[in-house]
Every structure is written in C-alpha cells, then in structure tokens.
Design a protein around this nucleic acid. Structure first.
Lengths: 142, 142
DNA sequence: TTATAGAGTTAGACTTATTCTAAGTCTAAC
DNA sequence: GTTAGACTTAGAATAAGTCTAACTCTATAA
C-alpha cells in the first residue's frame, strides 16, 4: 500500500485492481481521477483535478471530483495539504514528508523526510491520539 | 514588541499607545478588536472576532474585522493559523510555538516551543528566504 | 481652531471553494 | 435479467472572504 506499489501499474486495469484492493468500486470517473493523481507526483487542488480530468473527452462533474477526492482521503490513498488559506490541495504522496509553500507563487514543494524531523513529539492533549504531524515551511522571494 | 509588553496594559489608552507604537492609527474599531485579541490567549476566527466585538454595544462591520485582522497580521501583531480547511484562525501569540488541532472538536491548542522542535531546517528552494515554520499536530478522540 | 486630504469604515453586492439536493444512471450480487 | 443500493450529475445553496462606492473620521498644516 505504498506509493511504489500504486505506481507500478497505472494502466486502467492496474488502477482498477488497485482501487478494488482498497475497497473502492472502480467507476469510470474514479479511474480517470486516479489516473491523474497516481501517475505523477504533484499537489492538486480540486479545480486542478477537475480541469485535468475534463481536458480530454472524459466529463466528470465537480461534485464527483470532490466526492472522489474525499473518498480517496478517507481510504488513505491521498492526503489533504492545508497550506493555502483559500483552497485545499491533495497530495498523492502519502509517505511521511512535509512541504514548502511559496507565498509569492503559491507553489508547493515536498520536503524529504530526512531533511527535517522533529526532536520529539509533544504530549498529546488528554483523551486524544495522534492523527498526523504536518510541517509547513513558508518561503518568499529573495 | 513581545506578548508580555502588549499584555501589560490592556486599558483603551494602553492599547492605543501600543497600536501607535506599531504605526497603526488607533481608531475606535481597532481598539475594540485589539481588546479582544490582546487580553486573552486564544485562537479566533474572523467570525469569532466579529461576534465578540458586536456582543456589547460596539458595532464593527465584517469588512473592518477582516481589514483589521489583515493589518495586524501585516504588522506582526497576530499570526494566521492554517489548520482548518474552511477558515483561517488568528493567534495573538506571536512568539514561536506550534499547534494541536483536534479534528473532532475543531479546537486549537498551543504546543509550547520546548515541547517540539526541528532537528534542522531544510535547504530552502533557490531564490527564496524563510518566512515561517509551522507545525500542526492533528489529533482525534480516544 | 478650522480646513482638508487622505485614511478608515460601512452595507451590501460579489466571488470562490466547497457542499447539498433530488433525480437519474450504473454496478454487482442474486 | 432484476433490483437494491451505490454512484453521478446539474445546478442550487452555503459560507468565508473580498470588493465597491459612498460616507466618516483623523491628524496635519495653516
């Protein structure tokens, strides 16, 4: 269930098998979206995915794009990245890593996990368990 | 210009002097908003500030709330906190620290700086300089 | 003081990301 | 093949945040 496994076969049948293995019914729309997400490392907004998936002949509605991204997040196939105050990005790299966010260009870049790491994880608030640790390094021109 | 200095005098004249020292003209609306932000440690959404400031007799418009929060961020008096996918929070604690975000309740909590810290800052992308480093530890019930 | 320029504020319209709704379509299990 | 329920859809709805254009205040100079 790592990124490598997913990327090993990005043909429609390969993606369909992968989705099935994740208990996701592989519909035509989901395959189109999966193809976009899993054949390249990038950070997509919902709008990016919508534009990309509808660039060719395929037509997938906005609602389905949001539904599918939400489902994939729920299944752990992609991760939400909250770096921009106005929209959510989605990252098909679910391995532990962090992000640069360029305030001027709005571009997101991965920070490799060995490039940054926490000295210690703080004591969590009572009655809670860890969900994720996200580091965002904001940079600007110059 | 630390939090301590600011909190030492939260009377209207004290706040007015503080704003003036930060090159911010102390209007009635800004004083009302500053009072809310600087007399307690908390994380406010724009809506929180709007409700709080209009709870008593004062009436401050939504536009002014957004303008003022933006101005205070620009002047470094408060910080934006991006932890929630749908709205921005503002933190009157500008000292270096990080945040817990409870996915179930939506509550934000400070992580003291000695509780977490980075082993090393990664090499920044070419042509950029550091703006900020933000760590968000997401937790959930249990 | 008072006049004035420009900074600040306002209501409400607007924009934009995201969610909802209700009706139609597909999938898969029998 | 039927069928129940999962999936998709267009478009309406929601909600955070921004914009506009008119009005009001602040503070500086005379």
């Amino acid at each position: 269930m790592t990124l490598m496994v997913r990327l090993s076969d990005c043909t429609p049948p390969g993606l369909a098998a992968f989705l099935r293995s994740q208990k996701v019914t592989p519909t035509a729309q989901r395959l189109n979206i999966a193809q976009i997400l899993f054949t390249q490392h990038a950070h997509f907004s919902a709008e990016d995915v919508f534009n990309e998936v509808n660039k060719s002949d395929a037509v997938v509605s906005k609602a389905t794009v949001y539904n599918t991204l939400g489902l994939f997040v729920e299944r752990g196939l992609i991760k939400k990245v909250l770096v921009d105050p106005v929209k959510v990005f989605y990252d098909s790299n679910v391995a532990p890593h962090h992000h640069f966010y360029d305030l001027d260009s709005g571009k997101i870049q991965d920070i490799e996990p060995d490039q940054i790491s926490l000295k210690e994880v703080p004591d969590l608030p009572d009655g809670t368990c860890l969900a994720s640790v996200e580091v965002v390094v904001r940079v600007r021109k110059q």
